[in-house]
């Protein structure tokens, strides 16, 4: 299959079940909402070492937020419910509570409830105030900037992590341009995030390595500088850079739609801009139950 001269490989992205939640941060200004959101989603690229994968889903207009202020929706993903709950609470306490003028709300009404402000309230040292508004419990915690308002819990839902596609380009600049275009297009969608820096993985990995203590290592099959020595290199002579877009989402449809839009944006640049192929990362279909077949998605 070719789109605008770009080859779509007959392969698939392999993804895994995860647990996820959405939280909403509000603040007195967009800048402070962004600061709190950036801090909460910091060091959250991969569950391999970060504990969770998180990123900003989208900016919210004042009309969309519970308290009518500027807001930002964040999605957080982890491999299990306990891990997610721990990450959410830790990040809420260390990153949002500490951020000036901020408040924190649940962005999912349904699902299994996990603590958001339930334990954070004890920061109030007995001066915290509970309020049930519209059937939801909120905690008002007195802080030095005034009052930190936090919803008691947020909803945890089943989700999928690891949807991906690879951009294979002639040069590094051309790959970056395509990746930026893809990320920009995908960012318009709800229910998905791309947790890596700028939404792009510059160092995609494979499971395992020659060192027993290292769980993941370089994806040598797509590493341009190893194309002559890798056991099964996927790269031809004209490809000098490979970038990966990793997508986590709530449902298969969400990820499929994000992959389709992202690949479309990539292919729109076409062969004339150095985009040679679009491929995907998988483990032979043995590890993840979700298989996103590129050619079916783009058909």
């Amino acid at each position: 299959m070719k789109i605008n001269g770009v080859t779509i490989d007959p392969t698939f992205a392999e993804a895994f079940p995860m647990k996820a939640t959405r939280v909403i941060i509000t603040a007195d200004s967009p800048r402070w909402a962004k600061l709190a959101a950036s801090t909460m989603t910091g060091f959250a690229t991969s569950v391999i070492a970060c504990g969770c994968e998180a990123a900003i889903e989208r900016n919210l207009d004042p009309e969309e937020t519970p308290d009518g202020r500027h807001g930002i929706a964040i999605l957080l993903f982890a491999m299990g419910g306990k891990g997610l709950a721990k990450q959410v609470e830790t990040r809420a306490g260390q990153c949002v509570l500490t951020s000036s003028t901020s408040s924190l709300f649940s962005g999912i009404d349904g699902g299994k409830r996990i603590p958001l402000g339930k334990n954070l309230r004890f920061f109030g040292d007995g001066n915290q105030i509970s309020k049930v508004i519209g059937g939801k419990r909120y905690w008002r915690i007195p802080v030095m900037h005034g009052e930190f308002v936090v919803e008691e819990s947020t909803g945890m839902v089943d989700a999928i992590g690891g949807g991906n596609f690879l951009i294979l380009a002639r040069t590094k600049l051309q790959a970056i341009a395509a990746a930026d275009a893809a990320v920009t297009a995908i960012k318009r969608l709800s229910n998905v995030i791309m947790p890596f820096p700028g939404g792009v993985v510059g160092s995609g990995s494979k499971v395992g390595s020659k060192y027993p203590s290292v769980p993941v290592s370089v994806n040598d099959a797509f590493c341009p500088t190893l194309k002559g020595v890798a056991r099964h290199s996927e790269l031809s002579a004209g490809i000098e850079c490979v970038l990966e877009i990793v997508i986590n989402g709530f449902t298969q449809n969400d990820i499929e739609e994000a992959m389709r839009i992202g690949i479309e944006a990539t292919c729109a640049l076409g062969q004339e801009n150095g985009i040679k192929r679009v491929s995907a990362g998988n483990y032979g279909g043995k590890l993840g139950p979700y298989h996103f077949k590129l050619q079916e998605i783009m058909a």
């Binding site: 007195d28 519970p66 308290d67 009518g68 519209g134």
Partner: peptide
């Protein structure tokens, strides 16, 4: 005195 920039707006919106 203080400005309740989150709690009271939340309450009034409800």
């Amino acid at each position: 005195t203080h400005t309740s920039s989150s709690f009271l707006p939340l309450l009034f919106r409800s």
